[in-house]
Design a protein around this nucleic acid. Structure first.
Length: 617
RNA sequence: GGCUCCGUAGCUUAAUGGAUAGAGCAUCUGACUACGGAUCAGAAGGUUAGAGGUUCGAGUCCUCUCGGAGUCACCA
């Protein structure tokens, strides 16, 4: 059975050719679902043909409508309003369509297309626990991977772990100085939080040292000699902090020494680094498990931070890069609207972008992917534009398939989250909080009968996580999000639990179907499909197109909003029409089949977002 | 300052260039002696930041203005 929209499009093309003698592209014919308040299921926009026909829009619409009514079996009727042809689709078409959807548990998913794509997401630093920003990143990456999988790609979910550098050395030094042998085991603190606590402690100690230093004669002398005389002492020392840390701080010197030792593979330093990173990974694993996400491939920055040298050689020989007198290597991107960019320091060491160039090539060799999706916050837009441009100029075979899934930062009403100031919404806390809210709401509603404590707990988890995930994914990735911790995430209205509840209703019906062994084949005899039913059918019909659009736009929010729309239509259907108490056996069977199909699609769609459906709630 | 992104109801938001801008929250009104009320219906709330332009048709495309954010490191 071919898609009704494709059928209409090609029929319109035929109509235009026969009536007005001009060939048009069927794919360019606009077919929309008819808005409420008009009769019909689908509408054809005829304005593009008005010039060809040299007639009024309404005349063209009437002619095309009559043609479709005559030639296309599925078109049962039509009407014309202001240059739009509204087509009524025959019940028999919907009957067949529904039967095919209900019989196909993988409806909407595409067969394997033989293409590989790598989605990189999460990419945490190992000096502190995950926060709300990571949650948005992780959920976007995860659902993007699921959607690409549904669209037929073979997906590799990857994570690059930033496990080296100054930040982790701060935590390490802090633990060494003040830790007194504290471990996750002997303190009961989750590993990533423990390490994060020492990072925060280090920042506190640094601040104390800085405050004390400001009283010294050395500091006074530097302040007196400041360039900007109009600066107050407070303003000056705020700006000066980085320079002070690098040139005067005792703690700063110790951290740099530690980093050098790590780079020189000093056994004690490496052992401490391994131990503390191990704690962090244990903690991350629990958070990932709570979020229900996983990875196929882990890359560690400690393995990759020296990569990219060969690419620099390659670029030099191809004339893409050039060398300056001091030996540093650059690329000139001014003709593409970017700047000159350094890719190798004079001392021969890599910079951030060199690493990314190297890892891109390495990943291609590892997996042979045609596409790479980087889920990274939009503050790095410029970096990725430059990175992709360089890879293009180097003639990398995967250059055309690179995509930066850029998303807006999650902020608090007071501004950006800052670890140092303790204004971070911790991922674990937030997860726990939502499950708590779900439990609270469930208690207000009273006990569900005959449900085991295990199932109850599992459901509360599904509901809480469903609320959190849907809340975050329904917003378009590019939009900046402001999260107010004072206002708890809703469980009513446009939410995950709203959609889960529609599924629970359907599940209740299906259980009864099974128990009473109801035969659904009588559905075929149903006549007079109701508007609420047609809305659902049209929505089901749309699902494959929504999936493909979400995949090509790398936009999970499309799937989230689709699921909400479908659930809303189902709730209305449920309210307005009786299923088990329907007038006829045919109506009952039809509505049960329809409910079954809606349940399948809701489950499938929400699964792409990482939201699980409870059977009861 | 250059470049990029964003600006839709009090708040959170939706809308392949198509018809009367669609939802949710909050506010007010209603609806089951149960196919489960985490639901449904109704009211009120909009000059889509502003001004021009392109188009049969603009929240959407172009130009300018205003407001917000990001970025313009030999940091990652």
């Amino acid at each position: 059975m071919s898609d009704i929209i494709t059928t209409i499009q090609s029929a319109v093309t035929q109509a235009v050719e026969q009536l007005y003698g001009e060939k048009t592209d069927p794919a360019a014919v606009q077919v929309n679902t008819t808005p409420p308040d008009f009769t019909g299921d689908y509408s054809v926009v005829v304005f593009p043909f008005v010039k060809i026909a040299k007639k009024s829009p309404d005349a063209v619409a009437s002619e095309i409508g009559a043609f479709l009514h005559r030639e296309v079996a599925e078109v049962a009727g039509f009407n014309v309003v202001k240059g739009f042809v509204n087509l009524e689709i025959a019940d028999t078409y919907w009957q067949h369509f529904l039967a095919s959807v209900a019989a196909n548990p993988t409806y909407g998913r595409k067969p394997r297309n033989g293409q590989k794509v790598m989605v990189e997401y999460s990419s945490p630093n190992t000096n502190k626990p995950l926060h709300l920003g990571h949650i948005r990143n992780i959920l976007l990456g995860w659902s993007c991977a699921q959607i690409l999988d549904a669209a037929g790609y073979d997906v590799v979910k990857a994570q690059i772990i930033n496990d080296r550098g100054v930040a982790i050395c701060k935590s390490m030094l802090s633990w060494k100085k003040y830790g007194a042998g504290k471990t996750p085991e002997n303190s009961g603190i989750k590993g990533d939080h423990l390490v994060g606590d020492f990072y925060v402690l280090f920042e506190q100690k640094t601040k104390e040292e800085y405050d004390a230093w400001q009283q010294s004669s050395e500091a006074s002398a530097i302040f007196e000699n400041r360039g900007k005389k109009e600066q107050t002492e407070k303003e000056f020392f705020k700006d000066y902090k980085n320079k002070w840390f690098n040139e005067h701080s005792v703690l700063g010197a110790e951290v740099r020494e530690m980093l050098l030792k790590w780079e020189a593979h000093d056994p004690d330093t490496v052992a401490l680094w391994k131990q503390m990173n191990g704690w962090v990974y244990q903690g991350f694993d629990r958070t990932y498990s709570d979020l229900g996400v996983s990875f196929d491939k882990l890359y560690y920055e400690s393995d990759t931070y020296l990569l990219g040298k060969d690419i620099v050689e390659d670029g030099l020989s191809k004339g893409v890069f050039f060398k300056k007198d001091d030996g540093s290597v650059w690329i000139d991107l001014t003709d593409a609207g970017y700047d000159q960019k350094i890719v190798l320091r004079a001392d021969g060491t890599s910079v951030y972008i060199t690493q990314d160039l190297g890892t891109a090539r390495m990943r291609y060799h590892d997996f042979g992917c045609d596409r790479f999706v980087y889920v990274v916050a939009d503050e790095q837009n410029y970096h990725f534009q430059v990175l992709f441009e360089i890879l293009k100029r180097l003639g990398e075979p995967y250059a055309a398939g690179l995509h930066h899934l850029s998303y807006g930062l999650v902020e608090l009403p007071t501004g950006r989250m800052k670890t140092r100031e303790g204004t971070v919404v911790d991922a674990d806390d937030l997860i726990e909080e939502l499950i708590r809210i779900a439990r609270e709401q469930a208690q207000e509603r009273g006990e569900t009968e005959g449900i085991s404590p295990e199932e109850k707990e599992s459901n509360l988890r599904k509901i809480g996580m469903g609320a959190l995930k849907f809340f975050i994914i329904k917003v378009h990735p590019k939009k900046r999000m402001i999260f107010n911790p004072e206002e708890s995430v809703d469980l009513q209205g446009q939410t995950g639990p709203y959609i889960q509840y529609s599924y629970v209703r359907i599940n209740g019906l299906m259980q009864r179907v099974e128990k009473e062994n109801i035969d659904l084949s009588a559905a075929v005899g149903y006549e007079g499909i109701q508007p609420q039913e047609r809305d659902l059918l049209a929505a089901l019909h749309e699902y494959p197109a929504v999936l493909m659009q979400a995949a090509s736009a790398y936009d999970p929010s499309l799937v989230a909003n689709y699921c909400y729309d479908l659930a809303k239509k189902f709730h209305r259907f449920w309210h307005d029409l009786s299923v088990f108490n329907a007038d006829t056996a045919a109506a009952k069977a039809f509505r049960l089949t329809l409910s079954k199909a809606v349940g399948q699609v809701l489950k499938s769609g929400m699964q792409l977002l990482g939201v699980e459906m409870p059977n009861r709630m």
